[in-house]
């Protein structure tokens, strides 16, 4: 780790911690986040973590850029990676099925294996939440096993069903709400991913870990899932 501080905007600085996406970044990212929140305290407006960086948006009416740099430097002093368990671990139930995950067969073909093997490979790994973005509660997770990596669709869908679980390159994610989207869809979760009434709003937070647990159609329905086929939305 070789931290750098970069100018972003009048009241924003970027703390760049790494140059590559890696699961091993996350304990450092979490530790740095905690330290930054503590050192900026009430002057922090937003802290946006993403893969290798932490964007610090502070109150520019109180802090000068120089003072903000000092606070960042202070936060990095003697930084130690967080313990592996400092983020929460979630289990997301997923109904893997062609009707809600139309790219299951494409991924199986690409990987040269069966659909059930795709499901096994996707659900056996514990993923890191690298960042949230694109939409409220949309968590970019990885890293997906190399054999399942697939580029985004050439033409994004206008409507991807809420709860859809997808893969893009070596990342996986679940759509918290219906939206446009270009990820390869493989299943659907009945879990509420973003809820304005819940403390913290988003089920997944940066630095959390996630496991996908295959469930049957009956369980999916029992958990409140909507099994409208993806095709019916397109």
């Amino acid at each position: 780790m070789k931290p750098r501080i970069e100018v972003v905007a009048i009241d924003c600085l970027m703390l760049r911690l790494f140059d590559e996406i890696a699961e091993s970044n996350m304990p450092w990212m979490l530790a740095a986040s905690e330290r930054l929140r503590a050192s900026f305290a009430g002057q922090l407006i937003d802290l946006v973590p993403s893969y290798t960086t932490l964007m610090v948006h502070y109150d520019g009416l109180v802090l000068s850029p120089a003072q903000a740099r000092e606070l960042i430097a202070e936060a990095l002093t003697d930084l130690r990676p967080g313990t592996r368990n400092s983020g929460q671990c979630h289990v997301l139930p997923v109904w893997y099925d062609l009707s809600v995950g139309p790219e299951l067969s494409l991924l199986a073909t690409r990987a040269g294996c069966s659909v059930s093997e795709v499901i096994r490979r996707h659900s056996e790994h514990e993923y890191q939440v690298f960042a949230l973005g694109f939409a409220p509660g949309f968590a970019f997770m990885g890293l997906v096993e190399e054999s399942l990596a697939a580029p985004r669709l050439n033409t994004p869908r206008k409507r991807v069903a809420s709860g859809s679980v997808g893969i893009a390159e070596r990342q996986t994610a679940a759509y918290p709400a219906q939206s446009p989207g270009g990820w390869n869809l493989i299943g659907r979760t009945p879990s509420a991913l973003f809820d304005r009434e819940r403390e913290g709003y988003s089920l997944m937070q940066p630095g959390d870990t996630v496991r996908f647990a295959p469930i049957t159609h009956a369980e999916f329905i029992r958990l409140g899932g909507d099994d409208t086929p993806q095709e019916a939305l397109a």
Partner: peptide, 27 residues
């Protein structure tokens, strides 16, 4: 690699024509 984008960021996609990002930009 994707990173936080501030209000007013002037991003340049591959077509070389800049986009100034406003209040409702992605994060």
């Amino acid at each position: 690699i994707s990173e936080g984008i501030p209000l007013g960021a002037i991003q340049v996609p591959p077509d070389g024509q800049p986009i100034v990002l406003l209040n409702d930009r992605q994060t």
